[in-house]
Design a protein around this nucleic acid. Structure first.
Lengths: 121, 121
DNA sequence: CGGGATCCAATAAGATACTG
DNA sequence: CAGTATCTTATTGGATCCCG
C-alpha cells in the first residue's frame, strides 16, 4: 500500500515553479543523473545491474535498484529481461531519456568550473 | 564542531564524475535553485529574508537560512547587512551565481516537458 | 526584521543476509 | 545474475520558542 506521498503547497503556484520542483525531485537526488550519464555515454554497451553497481562507485544495490525503478517509471530508461538461466537484465536509455544528457553535462561542466572557482583560482 | 562530513569513495574517480557529484550536492537539494531563480529573475528588487520566505512557498525559515548560508559560502549570492534599526539584510545573486540561471531554466523547461510527457500526451 | 536553538518526526542510506 | 528483506544509523525537515 502506497501512502499518497505529500501534497506540496506548491500545487497552488505557477506551473513553472512546479516544473522546476518536478525536475529537482526526479533528478536532484544523489544518483539518478550519474546513472543516466553512465548508460547514456556508451549507448552501445549492454548495461547490466552488477556492472552498473560496480561502475557507479559508492552506490549500493538497494539504492541502485530503487533509482532504476524510478527512472523506468519515468520512461527515462528501459529494462529488458532475457529469460536465460540465470536471467539477464539490461538497461538502456530511452530516446526521451537522452534529453537528459546535455543537462547532466552542463551540470558536470558547471561543477568542474565551480571546483576551480572555489579552490580559489 | 563540524564533523568531517563524509569521504566519498568517489574521490578516487575521474574528475568529471567528481564534478557532477559536486553540482548535485550543491544544487540538487530541494530549494537552492528555486532561491537562485527567485533572486535572479528580478535582479533589481531588494531581496529580504522575510520576502523570500513568503515567496518561496513551503520553505521554512530554518531551511531558508541554511540554504542562503550555503549559497553565500559558494559565492553564488551575496548577503548585505544595513545597520538600520532593526537591521535590514538583502540578498543578491553574484555575477558568478548568474551562471546558474540557464541551468535552472533548462531544468524547469525539462520538467515542464516531462509533466506533459508523463501525463501521457 | 532576521534569524539561531532546540526538539521531534519522517526519510534516506548503509550493512548484511538471503532468494529465484 | 539480479535483485529483495530486514535492521540500524544518518540526514532532513517541520514546529516552536527565543533573541538582538
Amino acid at each position: 500500500m502506497k501512502t499518497k506521498k505529500h501534497v506540496f503547497p506548491h500545487q497552488q503556484c505557477k506551473t513553472n515553479f512546479l516544473a522546476l520542483r518536478d525536475s529537482l525531485e526526479l533528478l536532484g537526488g544523489k544518483w539518478k543523473l550519474f546513472i543516466v550519464l553512465r548508460i547514456g555515454k556508451n549507448p552501445d554497451d549492454l548495461h547490466h545491474f552488477k556492472k552498473l553497481e560496480k561502475d557507479i562507485i559508492g552506490i549500493s544495490a538497494k539504492v541502485l535498484s530503487k533509482e532504476l525503478r524510478v527512472l523506468e517509471e519515468n520512461k527515462i530508461i528501459t529494462r529488458t529481461v532475457q529469460n536465460t538461466r540465470p536471467v539477464t537484465v539490461t538497461y538502456a536509455l530511452t530516446k526521451y531519456g537522452q534529453s537528459l544528457i546535455p543537462i547532466a553535462q552542463d551540470l558536470q561542466q558547471w561543477g568542474l568550473n565551480h571546483r576551480k572557482m572555489i579552490s580559489g583560482i
